[in-house]
Amino acid sequence: MAESIPPVSVTSQKDIRVVEFTNNKILDEGNISNIEGTLVTLIGEVAKPKLLLDFANVEHLSSAALGMLIKVNNIIRQKDGQLRLANIKPQIFEVFVITKLNKLLKILPTRSEALSSFSQ
């Protein structure tokens, strides 16, 4: 069953939460609201959240997924936290460019670059 596989895996690097999408598609409403719930919970756990989203496995995403990312970004900013996106495949990065979300969201080529881009 699809629901038995969590849509994200979460690890920690010091005070940074690293979230990796386990599915290659972020399309379905149910899947997206599940991911959003997990991210909102993570953000809620600390005062100034630092969140890194690793897109290494993602080959497709929908506008609903973009909406979820914007919502997460807005919540993190309200909490004076930081959000980074990394490892986005070229085809997916184009989606961010077309929607100009590459100007709103901080996107780094690799996970290590994203990790070192967080300010204290």
């Binding site: 506008s63 989606v95 077309i98 979300l101």
Partner: peptide
């Protein structure tokens, strides 16, 4: 840019 919706049509027309 910070609104959550309205991107589906834009993507269809771009692609």
């Amino acid at each position: 840019l910070e609104k959550c919706g309205g991107r589906g049509i834009h993507l269809m027309e771009a692609y």
